[in-house]
Design a binder for these strands. Sequence first.
DNA 1: GGGCTTTGTCCTGTGAGTGGAGAAAGTTGA
DNA 2: TCAACTTTCTCCACTCACAGGACAAAGCCC
Lengths: 396, 396
Amino acid sequence: MRRMTARPANAHQAKLLRLLRDGGPNSRAQLGDQIDLSRSKLAVEVDRLLETGLVVADGLAASRGGRRSHNIRLNPGLRFLGVDIGATSVDVAVTNAELEILGHLNQPLDVREGPVAVFEQVLSMAAKLRASGLAEGYDGAGIGVPGPVRFPEGVPVAPPIMPGWDGFPVREALSQELGCPVMVDNDVNLMAMGEQHAGVARSVGDFLCVKIGTGIGCGIVAGGDVHRGVTGSAGDIGHIQAVPDGRPCACGNRGCLEAHFSGAALARDAVEAAQQGLSDELASRLAANGTLTAVDVAAAAAAGDATALDLIREGGNRVGQVIAGLVSFFNPGLVVIGGGVTGLGHNLLAAIRTQVYRQSLPLATGNLPIVLGELGPTAGVIGAARLISDHLFSPA
Amino acid sequence: MRRMTARPANAHQAKLLRLLRDGGPNSRAQLGDQIDLSRSKLAVEVDRLLETGLVVADGLAASRGGRRSHNIRLNPGLRFLGVDIGATSVDVAVTNAELEILGHLNQPLDVREGPVAVFEQVLSMAAKLRASGLAEGYDGAGIGVPGPVRFPEGVPVAPPIMPGWDGFPVREALSQELGCPVMVDNDVNLMAMGEQHAGVARSVGDFLCVKIGTGIGCGIVAGGDVHRGVTGSAGDIGHIQAVPDGRPCACGNRGCLEAHFSGAALARDAVEAAQQGLSDELASRLAANGTLTAVDVAAAAAAGDATALDLIREGGNRVGQVIAGLVSFFNPGLVVIGGGVTGLGHNLLAAIRTQVYRQSLPLATGNLPIVLGELGPTAGVIGAARLISDHLFSPA
DNA sequence: GGGCTTTGTCCTGTGAGTGGAGAAAGTTGA
DNA sequence: TCAACTTTCTCCACTCACAGGACAAAGCCC
């Protein structure tokens, strides 16, 4: 199948494509209700989109009391590739143009092996999805990487946990390999876009999305748009000082949030606690697996282990304290907590909420929901698909 | 003189008005270079603006090697009122449509006396400026208040230091009294807009403007626009925790930034130091005036007083620590320090810089200027004039 | 089958906008 | 002093975007 080459010719067409993406199939009349155009002009633009093949008319909808309408929908053959590269694993998914996930793969990975090795793996996963009949090719791809990105060029810059990626032309290289347009962004920003598109942040214009995984980051959405900062490092809250003269951090400072709470820090603290004999539960798990992760702590807490609960609660307090400051500063309408440690669930959430509601101003917290992300591990890939579709569904 | 009633009829006219505001008088040809319109269409829109009286053609400019051009400029009779209400004083200024200050008054004031008393004073100051021949009337007014504002309605909400103002319809009331359109915003946001329009932040799209006066606030500009947050309290950083279990704060928590450093906190600490005999310089000033302010501390530091220097340095460290976190989070292209304590000057700035450059990520600080505001006490009133002109110079 | 509703198309009028021709008004150099 | 050139501004004809009404098509309900 020849892949999508057409792009919307003007802002109206772009808006129509986004309406069809976000609202699914629609009749011309329904589209007319959502766009500020006369029926005649709308019909002209829809016809032009039909000519390009970006949208198709398939069949008639049920009558709503009068003449039946034609169903207008995005070309069902369009395929987007969403890639979410984490520090220790990668998610690759295929979506249709409505950003529904048709197939999803997850594999372990060490991002420090560098871009060449990682993309070899990603491309083979993309090929596997294609081979399984889900796609004949890709019309666009969104890529999330765990570090700052110079967004217009799609190039990682000075990423702390993946030094070998500095300056690697991800966008250009993948665009060549995949033969389709590619956009690259920070993984946390993509998670925020995912929750905004299909998760808890639907219809919220200003919100924060805190991702707690191996590290900690924060997606910032202001006025409906992701705020990336002047060098693409906005939301990098892992190295905000949480504890004066606290634990030493890999960055060279002391007391960074990430040094006190993150997937990695939690695992480290759990091992320490087990070795010090503070928790039989954790100790037996350590003995069984040789190591501990956030999942073990969550399980121990669920089993009523007091030490595990304390670790979660203290971590939540640290994160909550930092988030409280960000809430005062940014005054968001919603705070979403996501990432690998969401398995810690409501114990973590409760600690965060306590800190934020106690420390931030009442005006900022009065009507502020603090919730867990809805999409879990699919937030990133949906956000990635959304990123490339936003790009392709805008005037050329 | 009849005041301005016309508004730009479309986006082109609005853009032309802003070009003339920001760039001063221009010929049609020069305007054509800055706007994406054909010469013929441009001429039509300029003619329409001339008909409305918003702009005038006065005389011919010098030749640039060919036919001399007509000077097109904003109506020189237009007058904006800029009002910056602080906790303890108020600034009122008159500007022309190019936002140049034609006259400026400053008077002491206690904002806690409530809106009625304050506006009586403001209106009499506006009348005084009018009586001195600077204005025959006002075409619009911008008002800054030291607290959160529900921006669309122009109403203060739950302002901590001016409880009597909660819900007072500032915009509506002043619009009635002055007989012209009025816009209301937080004073810190206006300071940011002032520095953006005519100060150090010209041509910077993402920056933070930290105002340290009686309290501490932060104007946030993202993508060229002020970020106000969902309840208008964005930038309220005075109650971010700077010192765990630190000094008690009026808000009920402990260790808030404002409790450790602000104009008020600095004066309090200086009095304490003087009374404890730590500084002869401060003690003698206390004896002379019965009280101390930031100005005294600045003077003592300039005279080489070690205690005063320590107070400034320690305060700078506190603010710097908080700003460091905000820089990591927001990744701005510039940080502006302003407000009453700018008299503390480079001692303060040095302490702030040290903290930010030490604690924030290199990628975020690599090319980050941290500078004092350029406009001093006029930033607020210029920002206020800019606020109302942005409103009036947009399509009706 | 008649009246009503909904959907979609066709057609015409209006106004936005472009681009070129050319007039107006100046400078420069022989 | 005049010709050649430059810059500014106006005028005009043509194109295209768009609205809005008339109307045809296709359904419903009674």
